[in-house]
Design a protein around this nucleic acid. Sequence first.
DNA 1: GTCTATACAGTGATAGAC
DNA 2: GTCTATCACTGTATAGAC
Lengths: 189, 189
Amino acid sequence: MKEQGAKERIISTACDLFYKQGYQATGINQIIEEAGIAKASLYQHFPSKEALLNEYLLITRLNNYEHLLQFTAKMHPGKQKLMGLFECRLERMETSNFKGCAFIRIAYELPGLNQEATAQVHAHTQGLKTFIEEQLLVIKHSFPKGELREMTDMLLNLYEGAGLQGYIQRSVKPMEDTKKVVRKLIATL
Amino acid sequence: MKEQGAKERIISTACDLFYKQGYQATGINQIIEEAGIAKASLYQHFPSKEALLNEYLLITRLNNYEHLLQFTAKMHPGKQKLMGLFECRLERMETSNFKGCAFIRIAYELPGLNQEATAQVHAHTQGLKTFIEEQLLVIKHSFPKGELREMTDMLLNLYEGAGLQGYIQRSVKPMEDTKKVVRKLIATL
DNA sequence: GTCTATACAGTGATAGAC
DNA sequence: GTCTATCACTGTATAGAC
């Protein structure tokens, strides 16, 4: 990891710790220690801890989205890719130790979120909605607009709700069950 | 508020602040200031801030549950009470400034939650499940066991997912939409 | 650019007077 | 039981030497 520049080490360490421990529970001191750099060097690259938070959210969002696209790249648009969304998260829950959606965690941890961070949270949600909507339109080309939005929101709720329950119960079961339910739901379309 | 004992003032202030601002963001100093008592008095009644957290979760859980029971007291068991669960939260979102489910917030804010606090979170979830299951059994007396659990979990996911989206978007719309979807879902039972 | 050393506010928690 | 005063510690952020 030493061959990376200081800034890169700071970012990757901060992203890791912010997600694992939470933003507030992670101190600057821990970040610089694990990144192996001095405190002043951190403030050379980032004016404040909050700036680091914004960077964390941006990078995490892009990574999550990129991962989803790769995961579903070879799937057929429509039902298969829609199921892929759930399988993608299920895989994350099985391989890494899943701590819930990073953006929901931040929104819950910091009731007074700054403007840029809020924008990232919304962008993440909107990205999911768009992905879901696209697949739904492939499945049923002539979706009435109101029903499309309704179905999209319901699937999003199920997706986030299952992730949430899975984290709280420390189990992949809620997500597996939700996957089955979703499969049934879209089978009728 | 002055006629209440010191302990009661501490508890009600802490409950209020922990929910509004989060646990970590709320300092002992703010609690004692708003409660109008001295710091040493607080530690007379509670050995630590963490003890206050456990008290907060217990009281919030009992209050939430009590409120739900009162809200649905005059409704018919079954479909009406099940819809009442969603209407109850909808009402809370409209009247008070809803910050999401208190237990999910705590679970997300503190990845390393103590045993008693974890138990409260689980008890809350279990309480919701039991409530939902009871109504489902009234609706359809001969529910296959697997499907009953499946349906219960799905409704719980929708309930929590909608609360979550509602908080993030600062809108009651996700919960209203979810209510409609749930009404359709249980209409077919 | 990166380091050491430090500033300064804020935290949770205690001691001891009244 | 409740207060004032203070503890030891950690938090973020900066100054100044190399």
